[in-house]
Design a protein around this nucleic acid. Structure first.
Lengths: 184, 184
DNA sequence: CGTCATTGTGCAACTAGTTGCACAATGACG
DNA sequence: CGTCATTGTGCAACTAGTTGCACAATGACG
């Protein structure tokens, strides 16, 4: 039940239409809770139904049939209650680790290449996060109000750092001394 | 499409019944691809249908109506093909990071407690992994054939190390000097 | 022999996320 | 004025995972 809360958070930061939300997701909340426009529209409908958000009366006619949503007090309360909830971390589900495990049984041809590819992807993501950190959280501005947002970004950075580190080690190990890459 | 491959891997390591698979998942493959017995039975049915596995003729009548499955050549081929496939890492979806982001907007009462709770859970998981490493991969036995399995375990260890590290830092930051924990 | 815990298999309904598409309204451009 | 790109909303079908339950067979125990 995280998507509705992700949407409430985004709408509290700034009332938006479905498409605007989708775009904003892609470069902030979507980093740790991605969503498609279809899903977002469906969820907006449910949130409106539940009385958590409402459509803002349109200022002027816009492209398409644009609807701007804003959060109602009930929605804010719902979100605050959710923040304080105890919820266990969701179980890890990682296909790459699973494939390495399978490779231990049926052989690993093609796997090293895939590790290189993933390493490149994670490096790129790490770069992106570091860019955002430089832009949004420069060292001189340690505003207290951004503490939590900075911590979240730090989470992303540390996570990608873990992946690049682990993948680098794995590649070294597989291609390194005495490696038998294609053993069955 | 990872669960069937997880099952094929487990069955290649050792032919098993549905319940045995479920139990074995809980202490190996399930660490990075958890599954319930219901899901496993359903998938076993599909895999049999597809000709990837078959029921072993029963040696002697057992409890319940036990069925032991083994992997057929077609199943092994399917698994080997999957190992070599290019598949992007699945997007991160983490409710805790999301909740921190929400807390930045509606206030953070109760959040620090939750961070402590998660830290304890991740520490426990890390301990468990380190136990397994000590048991299954003692330093003297660097057998080449366990290389991949050891790397997978390393992945789990490094991942939990990331979480404990990040959570520790986040708690320090939130409860530390000049903290304003319940600000709205 | 009856009862109960254990081992074992599985169905049904639901929830959340994905994929593929349809279609409405508007402004820019020839 | 006609066409087309862009902005915008949304339905439908599917896939994967979760939750709650039913029920079969066997062995242990009184």
């Amino acid at each position: 039940m995280s998507l509705p809360h992700a949407i409430l958070t985004a709408l509290l930061e700034k009332p938006s239409s479905g498409l605007e939300l989708t775009r904003r997701f892609d470069r902030s909340i979507g980093y740790f809770w991605p969503s498609t426009h279809q899903q977002i529209y469906r969820e907006l409908g449910k949130l409106e139904q539940a009385g958590h958000i409402r459509v803002l009366p349109a200022a002027q006619p816009a492209r398409g049939q644009k609807k701007e949503y804003e959060v109602l007090p009930a929605g804010r309360e719902e979100l605050a209650a959710w923040v304080a909830l105890a919820e266990d971390p969701r179980p890890v589900r990682d296909p790459l680790l699973l494939r390495m495990r399978a490779a231990a049984v049926v052989g690993a041809p093609g796997l090293a290449e895939e590790l290189h590819r993933h390493l490149a992807l994670h490096r790129r993501q790490l770069e992106e996060y570091l860019e955002i950190e430089k832009r949004d959280f420069p060292p001189e501005r340690t505003a207290d109000e951004d503490r939590l947002r900075r911590l979240v970004l730090r989470g992303g950075i540390d996570l990608e750092t873990f992946w690049t580190g682990w993948l680098t080690g794995a590649i070294d190990d597989l291609e390194g001394p005495g490696a038998a890459p294609d053993r069955v």
